[in-house]
């Protein structure tokens, strides 16, 4: 009972936020609403007992990515573009039809999805029972998520860390270290690159 009230409230808030984001023309406000969207998603994940995912969503989705989007907005902001927005040259009917058909197919597809937490769902049949039964005795780690991430799927996590590292290198290559060429330069900036 209380679960469904929480779920319905959070999901309606998500839908309201989504419509507000679509209607909004100020990019700054849109970024702030994105952060709120992430926080409410994090709340939904908590309601679904996925605390690890909720952590990540709150910290990355609401925190870091909001900051990075704000920084991008500050970098790309052009006041003269802000005055008048150009309308697209085509009519919205074709995109609307595509969205409606895709959405209809997705809603139709949900009728085949097993119920939330169904023990007979295919996702619960494969390796999940093994992890749930054996992870504590094999790794000694009570948090199954950590056991799977760090031990059973250690290769995947190594790959993920490498991806993050590569992303950092890419950001540095693309937009890092430009300060060296500016004129009133501090010694600190020169040493960086």
């Amino acid at each position: 009972m209380i679960d469904s009230i929480v779920n319905i409230t959070l999901l309606s808030l998500l839908a309201i936020l989504a419509f507000a984001i679509i209607r909004m023309r100020s990019l700054f406000a849109v970024i702030m609403l994105f952060a709120g969207f992430s926080f409410i998603s994090a709340g939904l994940f908590v309601a679904m007992d996925a605390a690890d995912v909720a952590f990540t969503e709150a910290a990355v989705g609401a925190g870091i990515s909001t900051i990075l989007m704000l920084a991008t907005l500050a970098l790309t902001y052009a006041p003269e573009v802000h005055k008048k927005e150009k309308l697209p040259g085509h009519k919205p009917w074709l995109p609307l039809a595509v969205v409606l058909i895709t959405g209809g197919m997705l809603i139709y597809g949900t009728s085949d999805i097993p119920a939330f937490g169904d023990p007979n769902a295919p996702a619960q049949q494969h390796v999940a029972p093994y992890y749930l039964e054996k992870s504590l005795s094999e790794t000694g780690v009570p948090n199954v998520v950590t056991a799977v991430l760090a031990s059973y799927r250690g290769f995947d996590t190594l790959g993920e860390v490498t991806v993050i590292f590569t992303a950092g290198i890419a950001v540095l290559l693309l937009i890092g270290g430009r300060r060296k060429k500016t004129k009133n330069e501090t010694t600190e900036g020169v040493n960086e690159t």
């Binding site: 920084a71 056991a147 190594l158 993050i164 992303a167 950092g168 937009i175």
Partner: peptide
């Protein structure tokens, strides 16, 4: 093993997030 690799993950993620933030902030 798990403690050590989690430490590695934490250090890399922390450093990369800050590198990205500083890159964006400095660029501006």
């Amino acid at each position: 093993g798990i403690i050590v690799i989690e430490l590695g993950v934490g250090i890399t993620v922390m450093a990369v997030m800050l590198i990205m933030f500083f890159a964006f902030a400095e660029r501006g």
